[in-house]
Design a protein around this nucleic acid. Sequence first.
DNA 1: TGCACCGATGTTTTT
DNA 2: CATCGGTGCA
Length: 776
Amino acid sequence: MKESFIENLNSLNEAQRLPTLHKDGALIIIAGAGSGKTRVLTYRIAYLMTQGVDSFSILALTFTNKAAREMKERISTLVGSNESKNLWMGTFHSVFARILRSESDKLGYPSNFTIYDAQDSERLIRSIIKEKGYDKELYKSKQIKNRISAFKNNLITVKTYFNDLDLQESDKISQRPKMGDLYREYVDRCFKAGAMDFDDLLLRTNELLNRFPSVLAKYQDRFKYILVDEYQDTNHSQYLIVKILSDKFQNICVVGDDAQSIYAFRGANINNILNFQKDYQDTTVYKLEQNYRSTKTIVSAANSIIKHNITKLEKNVWTNNSDGEKIIIQRLPTDSDEGRYVASSIFEIKMNMQKNNSDFAILYRTNAQSRALEDALRNRDIQYRVYGGVSFYQRKEIKDILAYLRVIVNTKDEESLKRIINYPPRGIGQTTIDKLVVSANENNLSIFETIQRAMELKVPISSSIIIKLQEFVSLIKGFIIFNEISNAFEISNEVAKKTKILIDLKSDGTPEGISKSENIEELLNGVKDFVEGQRDLADFNGTLSEFLIDVALATDFDNNKNNNQDTVSLMTIHLAKGLEFPLVYIVGMEEDLFPSPMNIDTRGGLEEERRLFYVALTRAKEQAFLTYSESRYRWGKLNSCEPSRFISEIDEQYIINSTPKDSYRSKPIINTSIFDRIPIIKKRTLSNDNLINNPSSTKLLKLRHINSLNNVTDNSNELLKKFKKGDLVEHQRFGKGKVVIIEGIGNDKKASIDFYGIGVKKLLLNFAKLKIISNA
DNA sequence: TGCACCGATGTTTTT
DNA sequence: CATCGGTGCA
C-alpha cells in the first residue's frame, strides 16, 4: 500500500507536492482554477494517514456532499477503505448537523430536531407576518428571511439585535420597525417546533462550542487535523467554527481561490481567505498556478477577464496544454433560437468529433433559462439532465410525504404538520388550523398537543371537527408506533400506503398524477437505497430520523438516479463550481441577465459577477461557446437585450465573434430552424488561419453538410404552415390579433399572438381555432 | 369546507 | 410564465 502511494506522490508536480507533504501547522493553498487542488487535498489526507494520523482525527469540510463522497472514494483507493472509514468529511451543514444531533439536548433541542429548508422558513415567516397583521408589502417574507439569514450568519442573535441600536435604526429607516419582533418570533417558533434552519446548523454549532467548554474540548481533541475546501466561500459563522475547532492544535489547511468566490449573497466573506495569514501565525502559503484542465486559449481568456477586478490576490495561472480552439461567440435573435443553436451545435459536434452527451455542459446565470434549452434538446432527442432548480426533494408530492415522516419523528414540527393536517382532505379547514395555532401559542404547546387537548383548552371548534382531528392524531400515533419497530423504508412505505396518497395520485388518470406517483415511488426507492447503503456503517441504523437529516441536506448531485446515464448537463454557474467539462456553453451573455442587474450598482457586486463568469469559463477543458440573444422572454413578455459587458472584456485574440447576416433577423421563422440555414462555425472557416491545420477544425468544416441532412420534417397540416409573423388573424374567443412570433416545429408549432385589448397569448397552431384575415 | 377560477406577483445565485 | 394566495360559489 505504502509503496504504491509513494509512487502516486510522484505524479504530483513540485508545487502540489509541497503542501501535500506539509504535515503540521497552518497552511493556505491558493489554488488557481484547474490546478489540481482536489488532488492535493486527497493526497494530503492520505499522506497524513500514512504518517500515523488516525482517520478518526481528521475533519475535512467540503463545499458539496458530492465532493466529499468522491474524495473519500479516492482516499480509500489510496490507503484502503478500512483505514479511511472513520474520516469525517462533508459539508459544514451535514457535519455539524450530525454533531448537533448528538449534543442537541444541551441546547434544549430534541435529538430528532427537524431541519427546515428555505421553503419551510419562508412559509413560517409568512404566517407570522400574517398572524401579526403586518403589512405584507413592507414585510416581504423573502426579504425578511434573507435579513434573518444575514443576522444568523454574522452571529447576530435576537439578543444582540436588541442591544444594537444601529441595527434597529437601520430597520426603522427602511420602514421595518418590527424587524426585531419578527426575528424573535421566528427564532422562538423554530425552537418550539424543534426545528433548525440551515443557518441554525452553523449558528447553534457556534453556540454549542462557545457555551460548553467540555464539548469544545471534546471536538478540539478529536479533530487534530482540519482541512477546508473552497475556503473563499465560507461565511463568518463557518469561519468562527473552523477557528475555534482548530485553536488547540492549529493544524489547519485551507484551500481556495479568491477569484472563484461567488457566494457573497449568502454571507461568504472573501476576507476570510485574504486575511488567513493574520489569523494563524507561522502560516505557510502555497500557490498552485499551473492549470491542467484547460487549453491555453481558455486559461488566457479567463485571465484577461479576471484582470478587470481590483480586489484579488496576485497569481499567474498558466498551462502547458495546447492552444486549443478559440471561444465562439454567437449572437441570436431570440432565446428559443439560442436553445436551437446550442442543441444543433451539440448534435453536430457529437457526430463529427465522437463526443458523448456527458462531454457537454450548458451553464446559465438563472434557473429560469433552462426551459428554452430543454425544449431545444428534446426536439433534437439529446438526453440531458437539469441540476438544481426545483430539486426533487422540493416537489410538492415529495414534500408532502416527507412532511408525514417529519411529523412522525418530531410531532412539534409546525410547518410539516400544517402541510399534512388536511392532506389528503379530511375536512380540516384553514379556520380550524388558525384557531389551533392561536391556542397553541397562547398555551405554549405544540399544535399536535393542542389538538389532543382541544376540549380542555376550550378551543372553539365544533365537536364534529374535533372527531376528525382525533382521527388524524390516531393516524399519526399509529405511524409513530410502527416507526419504532421499522426502518426508514418500511415506515415510508406504510405512510404512502395508509394515507392512500400514492394510490390516489396513480388512479386520478391525469399525467400530472401519474408523474407525481412515480416521483413518490422514486422517493421510496431512494429510502430503500439509503437503508441498504447504510447497513455496513457502524454508527448508522437506517432509521427514519437519520434519513431525514440526510434528505434535508441533500442536493441534486446527491440524488444518484440516472447518474450513469449519458446526458448533457444543464445547471447554473454556481452549481458548476468545482466541475469540468470538455465543451461548455455559457448562454444568456446579456446585460440585465449576466451580470445580474441586482449586482451592478456596486463595485463589489460587479466583481462577484465577473468572478462568476471566470468560474463559468474555466469549467471548459477544450472549448467554450458564449451565446446571447437580442430578445428574450421574461415573465412571459418579450424583451430586447444587449450583449453582456463581459464579452467585451475578453481579450479579442481568443475569440471568434460570429455575427449573423443582418437580413435573417427580419425573416419569419417558419418550418425550419434558422440553424438549418446558417452554418454554425461559419466565421471560423473564413477568418482563422491557424485553425486550418488543426485536425479537429477540418472535422468542423463538415458541419454545414450535416446540417442539411438534419432538417426536421414538419408534419403539421398545410394550413398551419401559412401562418407567419405579422399576419392578422382572428380567434373564436380572443378576437382579432397580430402574430408576433412563431416557434416550435411540427405539432408543437406555437404562435404568440397579440390580441387587441387582451394581450399576447401563446397558442398551439395545431389546436387553436384561427383564421387568417390578412397576410403580412 | 372544498374546489375552481382569478389576478397579482415575482427572478439572481444555494447549503 | 408559473406559482401562489385570495375569492366566491356549491
